[in-house]
């Protein structure tokens, strides 16, 4: 399994778009599995950290495979996208539930729940990113890697062969632009 994930990553890196489609469901369900594993083993106050999750996911899926840095960073890029969709899908589903959409069997106690505003934020960030992708795809990708993939500016710089300084300032510009879009 680890081999097939590694080879899928390799194929995707070499431009095979179908490999990404095969990879996504694997990453998606593994990420969920690890998330629930966390809930089981960690203390109740533990907060689910996207970055830590993705790192663990990589170790798990590609453990015996390549130690190639490029494979790892490409994997991170996929995982970032998956993490983004997990968070956004979840926030949207909750939003829909609150509006009374879908079959309602569960009335969740609001006290422990996140507020609708916050739930809205991740969706708004996602939508802002979509808008940014249309005008400047490269910068949108930086944000995705940094926030959903948990990569540092140094790592991004290395994988994209850019000066760290350039990555940092592009990120800040993108974030400022997004913040203005999202928070007004």
């Amino acid at each position: 399994m680890a081999d097939s994930v590694t080879s899928l990553i390799g194929r995707w890196r070499d431009g095979d778009a179908a490999a990404l489609e095969q990879l996504m469901p694997i990453v998606y369900s593994e990420l969920h599995r690890i998330a629930s594993g966390y809930m089981r083993s960690e203390s109740p106050s533990h907060t689910l950290q996207p970055t830590a999750l993705i790192n663990e996911l990589y170790l798990r899926l590609a453990a015996s495979g390549s130690r190639d840095f490029h494979d790892r960073t490409h994997f991170m890029a996929i995982a970032a996208r998956v993490m983004r969709s997990i968070l956004v899908d979840h926030a949207r589903a909750r939003g829909a539930a609150k509006r009374g959409g879908g079959k309602v069997f569960v009335a969740i106690n609001d006290e422990l729940d996140f507020t609708p505003e916050r739930a809205g934020t991740v969706v708004a960030l996602h939508e802002g990113l979509e808008a940014l992708t249309r005008s400047d795809e490269e910068k949108a990708r930086l944000v995705e890697l940094r926030f959903f993939g948990g990569m540092t500016a140094e790592e991004i710089a290395l994988v994209q062969s850019k000066p760290v300084r350039r990555v940092r300032s592009d990120l800040r510009l993108a974030l400022a632009w997004l913040h203005r879009e999202v928070a007004g």
Binding site: L48, L87, D113, V143
Partner: peptide, 23 residues
């Protein structure tokens, strides 16, 4: 906007992750 952006998104993503956890 630059001053507030990073912590704003950081917070947004953390709380979204927490809500996955709460679920």
């Amino acid at each position: 906007h630059d001053a507030k952006a990073e912590s704003f998104f950081d917070h947004a993503i953390r709380s979204a992750a927490t809500s996955v956890e709460n679920a």
